[in-house]
Structures are given as C-alpha cells and as structure tokens.
Amino acid sequence: MTTNPVETHGLGKRYGGTVAVRDLDLTVRPGEVYGFLGPNGAGKTTTLRMLLGLIRPTSGGVRLFGAPPGPGSLRHVGALVEGPAFYPYLSGRRNLAVLADHAGVPRSRAGTALARVGLTGRAGDRYSGYSLGMKQRLGLAAALLKEPRLLVLDEPTNGLDPAGMAEMRRTIRALADGGCTVLLSSHLLAEVEQICDRVGVLHGGRLVAESTVEELRTGGALRVVAGPEDRARDRVVALLGAERVRADDGGALLVDVERDQAPRVNAELVRAGVDVHELCWSEPDLERRFLELTGGDPDVA
C-alpha cells in the first residue's frame, strides 16, 4: 500500500484564546497537486508550519510519508513557507550551498536548482540585491535542492509579475507531472483552478470543503434572458417553484434545474408568449463558490 505524503488527524493549534486551526483532517495523495485555499488568516500557513515541524500542534497529529515531521520524513520534502528568507550578505549560489550542507546533499545541486528556476545568470549576486520575483524563485530553488517527493509551497507566486506567475505555475505543473506531490497554499483562485487536482478550502481554521476543482464548481444553473422579465419569472416559478429561481446581477434568471430540464423551461416560456433571448448553461465560477464557503470573506483575490 502506498503511503500518503501528508495525513493529518484532528490537527489543531491554539494561541492562548485564539484557535488558528481546529480539528483538521487532511490527506494529500501521492502525485496530486492539492490546493490549500482560504482567505488570509484562515490558518493555511499555520497548518503548513505544523506539517513541517516548525510549530507544534496543540491537538491531533501529522504524518509525512507515514512518519511524524522530523529529519527522517523531511528528507523527502521541499518547502517554501511564508515567503523566501535567505542570508542577505550571501549570493544566491552561496545561500543554496549552505542549505545543501544542511540538507545533506552535494553542493553541486545548487547549480542544478538555480538552472531549474532560471536564476543561473544572477547566481553570483548578493541576495539583498534580488527583486521580489528573484527571491521567490530562489525560494523554489531551495525547495528543490533535495529533489523532493513532496513539495510544500505557501503562496509561491506572491510578488511575481504575470510572466513570472505563469512560469512558476508551469514549473509546479511540470514537477507534478514528473511524479512530485505538491501541496500548494494560495488565496489566488485562478492559480488553484489552473494547476490543482484537488482543493481543500480552509476557513476560520476549519476545512469547510474538499473536492476536485470540477466538483467544487458543480451546481451550475440555467441562465435565462427573456422578456418581459416579470412574466418570464412568473412562468418559471409556476413551473419549478420560487426556491429554484433567482436573478443574477444583470437581470437574467438563474434556474436551478438539471441540464435535461432546459428544453422544458424553454417550451413553457414560449408557450406563455415570452420572448426567449438567451438560454444557456451557466457554470458557477470558483470565486462564487469560494465566497459561499467562506461566508463572503472579501480577503481573497
């Protein structure tokens, strides 16, 4: 049986009277890209720090490849947590050489990792002179030093320009395609949508949803643009009930029905003499779903 790269059971962290994470059961399966989604302050970074042994849970436990966080299990883990942090007076290459020593891998891996993130040309420059994007890429290079089987990335595209974000996402996807499991924390819905296989939504320290991106977006509605609007609404309500009909921001009707009921709705409207201008299936976007799950927390991009 294959051991899951990450498993938590009843994981919790309390700071005095504040509960940062509560009763978290999380499983990241081998080879998947798991998106850890949540608004700022939801407990994402606290959870990642517990996974990596930087902070101790106040309840529950963590297993990385079946073992508690520690030198043994971290041998297979690369991580970038809460932004890159390096020694400013050392060059990028020297920073990675020092970390290679700590990781117990050959210093030559520094050059390979730098090439992988496209920093070879600036490897000899001091870290203090790096742009935010370069620092972020050096952070990813450090996470790749051990050629990890599990990559834990906390908001890895922070500070990157659009091209840099796209490149970072391509790199992460390529690593995953190469067999590396990725646990990616983000509050960027588009990012999660693009590269993640499964998503866990954290809110107020709790896991409020966990599914594939597709599943998270199920529950689409039939979008109807018809006139007169009042008459159209009355007919659909008469047909399906008021609880299944709502209006969107543009005045169109959103009807909660199965896809195969669309012709029936159309026929009813036509029969009633309503002009049907548009009838289409509306996929719910991830942002709407996310806002529903997190109670409309605005702190999300």
Partner: peptide, 9 residues
C-alpha cells in the same frame, strides 16, 4: 524555517 525544512533537527 529555511534551514529547518531542509531536514536537520
């Protein structure tokens, strides 16, 4: 964090 996630205790 940068050092300790590399594995050493």
């Amino acid at each position: 964090k940068t050092v300790l996630v590399q594995q050493p205790s």
